[in-house]
Computed example of a mutant assay.
Amino acid sequence: MTALLPVLTLLIGLAIGALVGNRLASRSSGADSLDVDRTRDIANATLATTMRELIDVNTRQLAEATARSAAEAAQQQKSVHDLVAPVGEQLARLDQKLNDLENKRVEDSGRLNFSIGSLASLASSLQKETAELASAMKNTKVRGNWGELQLQRVIELAGMTEHVMYEQQEHIAGEGDSARPDMIVRLPDSKKIVIDAKAPMSAYLNSINATSDVERERLLAKHAVDVMAHVNALAKKNYASRVDGSLDFIVMFVPGDTFLTAAFDANPEFLEQAIAKNVFPASPGTLIALLRAIAYGWRQEQLAENAAQVVALGKELYERVGVFTGHLQKVGNSLTKATESYNSAVASLETRVMPSARRFETLAVAADQALPGVSPIDVTTRQVSLPELEAGPTEQNLS
């Protein structure tokens, strides 16, 4: 369209010029009307022809521009498609992954809800059982039985052997009163350790159900006082003088780490005060370590006894081998003497007996079968050559 502007401007100028000339011609006095009409017709025809040519040129250029625009649009569309296609594939894969994640989330959410429900049910059951246990543990006899049961489990975990490494509920007589400790542990050197498993726990169990922090702290402080009172009671029993071979301390077994920790928290000097009275507080973990050390000592003692028995057996075997070797040497000597006697008999047979017997053959009184010959024994017995026998066997070895 820009290239046609000069042509269009020229045509318009020609048309205006023709009109102006026509006006001027109409004003002149000597102009002929026929020439004016002819000139107008020629100008109109020229203008029409020029306009048709201009329209044809414009139409062709418009068609070419439209084709070029369509080709460029197609190329641009292809370029955009090539550029957007990978993004579309990535978006499709992302959408698939999002769907998979959503499905997995729904599945995991279902399992989580089920697990939460199971956990809530378990927590409710555990809370109920805990309440029942706390109610049962308020009974002194039940607490004692539970402590003894925990002590038995500790013994089993430590690998102790009853009636060899320890005794349970052994009666101890005394002046005016008697005692029955829960366990007496035997040591390899005939020493003993007394263990008690009757620690108080009522105040601690009550503190679990306390409704306020003040009440809980008061009950925990009472728990520490109760445990310390039990320490004093054990110290007064003086097991060291009543049990033969007992060490100068007693182990106070507390069947749970929490009970002992609560006493330590309420009374930071509790451990020092208990040890000063020769009472050693022990939780299950501490007692297992102690009993395992004792069991290890028993195993080493057994190994030492076995080694001593092996030494004694080796000494006895050595002595018996010496006796047997002496007897064997006697047998060898006897076999040598027997061989020598046999060879002497064979020589006597060949030199003294057989010549007289063969004379019967010359007298025709011998049997059809000739007398067989007898060969001497050339094999000798092997002497036992041992350093122990060079000086000759002793009377003890030959007995």
Rank of each mutant, 00 (worst) to 15 (best):
A3M: 05
L4F: 04
P6E: 09
P6Y: 08
P6Q: 09
T9F: 09
L10W: 06
I12T: 04
A15E: 03
G21T: 10
N22E: 11
R23C: 14
R23L: 15
R23Q: 13
S29K: 03
S29N: 05
D32W: 05
D37V: 05
T39W: 06
A43M: 13
I55L: 09
N58P: 00
S69E: 08
S69K: 10
A70K: 05
A74G: 03
A74L: 04
Q75V: 11
Q76C: 02
Q76D: 08
V80R: 07
D82K: 09
L83F: 09
A85L: 06
Q90T: 12
Q90A: 15
D95E: 12
K97T: 15
L98E: 06
D100Q: 11
R105G: 07
R105P: 00
V106I: 09
S109L: 06
R111D: 14
S115R: 14
L122M: 14
S124M: 12
S124D: 10
L133I: 06
S135C: 07
K138V: 05
E148I: 01
L149M: 08
Q150H: 10
Q152I: 00
R153M: 03
A158C: 09
M160E: 02
H163F: 07
M165Q: 14
Q168G: 03
G176N: 08
S178P: 11
R186M: 08
I195K: 01
A197Y: 00
A197S: 09
A203N: 14
N209T: 15
N209M: 15
A210F: 10
T211M: 02
E215F: 02
D226L: 13
M228T: 02
M228R: 01
K236Y: 04
K237P: 03
N238M: 07
S241K: 08
V243T: 07
G245R: 11
S246R: 03
F249L: 06
I250W: 00
V254R: 00
G256R: 01
T258Y: 12
T261W: 02
A266Y: 01
P268G: 03
E269N: 12
A276H: 05
N278Y: 02
S283E: 03
G285V: 14
L287P: 00
I288V: 13
A289G: 15
A289S: 15
L290S: 07
L290Q: 14
L291K: 03
L291M: 15
A295N: 04
Q302V: 12
A304V: 09
E305H: 07
Q309P: 02
K315Q: 10
T325W: 01
L328W: 02
L328Q: 04
T336D: 15
V346R: 01
R352Y: 08
R358G: 03
F360C: 11
F360Q: 05
L363M: 14
D368T: 15
L371Q: 02
L371M: 12
S375E: 07
P376A: 09
D378E: 12
V379L: 10
V384Q: 06
P387D: 15
L389F: 14
E390C: 12
Q396I: 11
S399Y: 10
S399I: 07
